[in-house]
């Protein structure tokens, strides 16, 4: 019985990881074609990526957009979460549903809406449009993460701060937010990754002048078969893993204890 369970779990893990491993191994090919397993090995497709403005341009744009999105979404989402969790006003639950609704709406629908909106205000094909679009996608995630952190933190902390002489703003800055620092860090990291990986909005509102890395990959696979794609995929995966590992280490409170819990 136990053996069966182990075998099942093993199969499941292989099923989840195999595609990524295949891509990574293929990226080390020396051939013009995407062969698996490679007959000869090299890093030429990685060299190709770093040596070509076709690729480094979109990569830099992706990083820049993701950084700005991370800041904007974390600030907006945190303020919204504080209002939702600590506020006492009419229509609070309706507002909460509304604010996290972008998570439920199909991304294509969102992207189409953003396309029409930005086209009306002549913002299509600009980094600004990408940033705004990705902020819309990332903010609900921030709200959900920070909301969980706030619900787990003792509201008496804030009452104590008020009684000790801190007004509402100082309470927020000196007590509420520092007490949920791990949630804020997680929210910022996830907001970055959401933007960095996002492709649908990028395709709809981006263009020749604002091509992010995922959009560039999408175009590459449609119009040509370039093994550089496998190198980029591997790099993207490594970046994501790296960011999560760093986040887990940073979030570890004190010396030992809770690890990566979101």
């Amino acid at each position: 019985m136990r053996a069966v369970l182990w075998a099942f779990c093993g199969l499941l893990l292989v099923f989840l990881i195999a595609p990524i491993l295949v891509v990574m191994v293929t990226s080390l090919n020396d051939s013009q074609y995407m062969e698996f397993p490679p007959r000869t090995w090299s890093l030429r497709w990685y060299a190709n990526f770093f040596g070509s403005a076709q690729w480094t341009g979109p990569a830099l744009l992706s990083v820049r957009v993701a950084l700005v999105v991370s800041v904007c979404a974390t600030v907006l989402g945190t303020l919204a979460a504080v209002g939702i969790v600590r506020g006492r006003f009419r229509g609070r639950q309706a507002l909460e549903m509304f604010l996290i609704s972008p998570m439920i709406v199909p991304i294509v629908v969102m992207a189409l809406g953003l396309f029409f909106l930005f086209s009306a205000v002549h913002l299509l094909d600009s980094p600004v449009a990408l940033t705004l679009g990705h902020t819309v996608v990332a903010t609900p995630l921030v709200i959900v993460l920070v909301r969980a952190g706030l619900r787990a933190s003792d509201p008496a902390l804030e009452l104590a701060a008020r009684s000790l002489g801190a007004n509402a703003w100082r309470t927020l800055i000196y007590v509420t937010l520092p007490a949920i620092r791990p949630s804020l860090a997680a929210a910022a990291v996830f907001a970055f990754l959401v933007s960095f990986d996002e492709v649908v909005v990028a395709i709809f509102v981006g263009g020749p002048a604002s091509t992010t890395l995922p959009k560039r990959m999408w175009e590459t696979i449609r119009f040509e078969i370039d093994p550089t794609l496998t190198a980029v995929s591997s790099l993207l995966t490594l970046v994501a893993v790296f960011v999560l590992v760093v986040a887990a280490v940073v979030r570890r409170p004190g010396k030992r204890g809770a690890g990566l819990t979101v």
Partner: peptide, 18 residues
Amino acid sequence: PERRNIGVVFQNYALFPH
């Protein structure tokens, strides 16, 4: 509350963890 100059001690201490 911050203008009343009243000290409050809570059941769960409410010490700032950070």
